[in-house]
Design a protein around this nucleic acid. Structure first.
Lengths: 138, 138
DNA sequence: CGGGATCCCATCGGATACTG
DNA sequence: CAGTATCCGATGGGATCCCG
């Protein structure tokens, strides 16, 4: 076993910085990773990188997300301390979402991945063609 | 509109390296991003970082994954050119999965994110407590 | 051992409607 | 505008069986 595992340790959250292991099924770090890398999580965090955004601004940027999913995603990220939510009780109401310092670190690493993937799509697409051709040709 | 969008361009894959945009609903780069960041994708790629692994080795490392999902995940990653699959027709059969050069680049960026998240769990956990306390206390 | 095929259910997630 | 609530279909994903 390479990783010290998270097992028992993770359960008791009073310990400061014991080892967390996303590869362990029950480790809370896996949940947070999923919030951040999930279908809408990664795009939402990425969309917030350039500064605060309002709800419908995010909806437009994260093309295809529904209100429900965006709301759900933002709540999970807020709970994990990745984004902050600032509401103003004006009329019409205005709510700004913004990355926390922690969130900005996450976003940087996420965008590094995103930009790399975008830049690799040439390779990916031709790989797919080769794969499909081999299957279809059999 | 900040991003040049992927829209029409992405459909025709003969173009070399036109702009791909994960924020666009129909862009193929979004699919690849999901394969890589998905629930099992990120862990599978991460687990392959240290070298080739066999199927059941991966199953043990990626704690909680089912045979079906691991198989499915590996196929998607193979099709995208992230991992290679090398089968030997011995008995018992032996199949090794390994990252491609592209896959290794992806894995590096993914692991940077994973390790950062693992290292931030202290902050995350206390943020969750504060969030839950505020809700429960109302 | 390394999977493919099938069954089946839980959750995801979209559409719609309603509130403030 | 910024959500919440409900309904409901699509999909994710686990369990099981089976084959090479």
């Amino acid at each position: 076993m390479e990783t010290p595992a998270c097992t028992d340790v993770c359960a008791e959250a009073d310990a400061a910085d014991l080892s967390f292991d996303v590869f362990a099924r029950a480790c809370p770090s896996r949940e947070t990773l999923e919030h951040v890398t999930g279908r809408w999580g990664s795009l939402t965090v990425g969309a917030l990188r350039d500064g605060p955004r309002r709800f419908n601004e995010l909806r437009r940027r994260v093309d295809g997300v529904s209100e429900k999913m965006l709301s759900q995603t933002l709540h999970a990220l807020e709970r994990d301390g990745i984004v902050t939510r600032e509401a103003q009780a004006t009329n019409p109401p205005r709510v700004d979402y913004e990355l926390t310092p922690l969130g900005r670190e996450v976003a940087d690493r996420l965008l590094a991945l995103i930009h790399f993937v975008e830049g690799s799509m040439g390779v990916v697409l031709s790989s797919r063609e080769a794969y499909d051709a081999a299957r279809g040709g059999l």
